[in-house]
Structures are given as structure tokens and as C-alpha cells.
């Protein structure tokens, strides 16, 4: 009797391609991919989506999401997405970028796409390290964090402080929504999905630029187990990168 009534209550989103990812065990990219995929399915955006991928571990996102995509040079995804959106304004356009891509080499592109209020959505995965290239210092690397290019730990005096992107983005005129979530716990993952949904809605209802930062674990380059990595997000990252919504004008009826 019970077997007949059994319902599948959690499964892979339709839009996620059924294949193993290249990510390391415990890497949070897979969670971020799934949240994006769930929303594209739930909001029925898949057939209308033009995705802009970036450079870094997530360069292969186009192998995992069953949507049309263009691959941008390192850091340039917001510019490429601007071109895509201006060319096909009726489509849903988003970028998916890591912290090296977005906050270092692509700082100009993200700032100006946001400031112009491009009707695009940006998924920003911050794991405080360059993953693909082997764990070098990123603009978001925490003070004292050891990487392959700051083996003694990031030094504030000579290497500057980790950049809080969401706060900067929230301060720009063209931005409709800016929030920071985290992928380290079930509760935070649920909230992160709400942030993403809000950002996506800012595009679908024409409000403006939506930005969501996702604090993520990189056990391999942090030289930790996945469980230790999740603890680090709680203990070290969230205190420096506070979670929450930093800007949301969607409630006020939007910008022109």
C-alpha cells in the first residue's frame, strides 16, 4: 500500500544534465548549479535562457545546464551578457562567476554592468580562492588565509583586504537587488535560493540588475575536509562577509 502511494519529493531538476560533474568532493558549485537549475525549471525560463559562463572551475557549467550558452573571457561575463541582452532583450540572461573572475580581473565589467542597470542576473560564487588554477590568492581571500601565492597567509599591509562585493554592488544606482547567501547549511541553502529567485525576478519583471553572492566551500584548495570547509564558512567567512539582503528596490516598484 505504502509503496503505491510513494512520491518522489526530491530529484534532479529537469534542466540539469544527467552526468557527473568534474568538481571535487564537497565543492559547493554543484549546489549553486542545482539552485539555478531548480529556479530555471520552476520559473519556466529554460527555453528562454541565454547563459554567459566565465573562467574558473565553473567554466564547464555549460556541460551541466541544458541551456544555450556563450563562454566569456576571464572576467568579461558581465560585458558579454550585456551584449547578449541588448541583442536579444526578450531573453533571460545570467552570468555565473567566481571571485577571481568577478572581483579581480572582471571588476570593471561587473561594476559598470551593475551601474548601468543591465537587466541581467549575476550569480557570484565566492570561495576566497582561485580554484581552477590551483589555489592562488583571490581578492576575497581572508586575512591570514594561506594560498599558493600567499603561503604565509594573506597580509593586509602588502596584499590588501578581502573585497566585500555585495556591499559595493548594492551601493550602485542601477542595481535592483543585491544579496549574500551561503551554501554551508540546509537553512542557508534555502535562503540562498530565495535570494536567487528574487534576483531572477528582477530581470523577468524588468526591474533591473540582480546580484547574488554565494559563500562557498573549496575543500581542496583550503586543504580541508568538506566538513571542515563548511565549518570554516560558519566560523571565518560569514563574520567577515555578513549574510543578508543589501539592496532590494523591487518592493518600491522598481527603477525605470
Amino acid at each position: 500500500m505504502s509503496e503505491i502511494n510513494e512520491k518522489l519529493v526530491f530529484d534532479k531538476p529537469e534542466i540539469i544534465i544527467d552526468r557527473a560533474t568534474h568538481y571535487c568532493p564537497g565543492c559547493h558549485h554543484g549546489i549553486a548549479h542545482r539552485l539555478v537549475g531548480e529556479l530555471l525549471d520552476e520559473m519556466e525560463l529554460g527555453g528562454n535562457t541565454l547563459m554567459t559562463t566565465s573562467i574558473g572551475c565553473s567554466v564547464f557549467l555549460y556541460n551541466y545546464l541544458n541551456v544555450d550558452a556563450v563562454e566569456a573571457p576571464h572576467g568579461r561575463a558581465p560585458a558579454v551578457a550585456t551584449g547578449v541582452k541588448r541583442a536579444r532583450p526578450d531573453h533571460f540572461v545570467f552570468t555565473y562567476q567566481g571571485d577571481g573572475d568577478l572581483a579581480s580581473i572582471g571588476m570593471a565589467e561587473i561594476m559598470h554592468a551593475a551601474n548601468r542597470g543591465e537587466k541581467i542576473s549575476v550569480v557570484f560564487v565566492n570561495n576566497t580562492v582561485y580554484g581552477m588554477t590551483g589555489g592562488q590568492m583571490a581578492p576575497t581571500t581572508l586575512i591570514g588565509q594561506k594560498t599558493t601565492t600567499c603561503p604565509n597567509g594573506r597580509c593586509e599591509t602588502t596584499q590588501g583586504s578581502p573585497i566585500r562585493m555585495t556591499e559595493i554592488i548594492a551601493s550602485l544606482g542601477g542595481v535592483a537587488y543585491a544579496a549574500r547567501g551561503s551554501l554551508d547549511s540546509v537553512k542557508n541553502i534555502r535562503t540562498a535560493k530565495k535570494h536567487l529567485k528574487k534576483a531572477f525576478e528582477c530581470q523577468t519583471n524588468g526591474t533591473g540588475f540582480g546580484f547574488v553572492e554565494l559563500l562557498s566551500g573549496c575543500p581542496t584548495n583550503w586543504k580541508m575536509t568538506p566538513l571542515q570547509a563548511n565549518e570554516r564558512i560558519q566560523n571565518d567567512m560569514i563574520p567577515y562577509f555578513p549574510l543578508g539582503v543589501f539592496k532590494d528596490i523591487s518592493e518600491d516598484g522598481g527603477i525605470c
Binding site: 541565454l50 556563450v70 573571457p73 560585458a79 551584449g83 541582452k85 541583442a87 536579444r88 559598470h112
Partner: peptide, 26 residues
């Protein structure tokens, strides 16, 4: 059509890449 004054030549050329990928004369 549409016009964007980009933040740099780097960005302008990458916008072109995006619009071109979308198959629009740019």
C-alpha cells in the same frame, strides 16, 4: 537598435562577442 557606451574597449569588444553570439548584426 541599441547603443552602449562601454566602460572600456575591453568591455565594448566583449559586448560585441555577446551580441554576435546571439546572431545579431553588431
Amino acid at each position: 537598435g541599441d547603443f552602449v557606451q562601454a566602460e572600456s574597449e575591453v568591455a565594448a569588444a566583449n559586448m560585441l562577442l555577446g551580441a554576435a553570439a546571439a546572431g545579431i548584426r553588431s
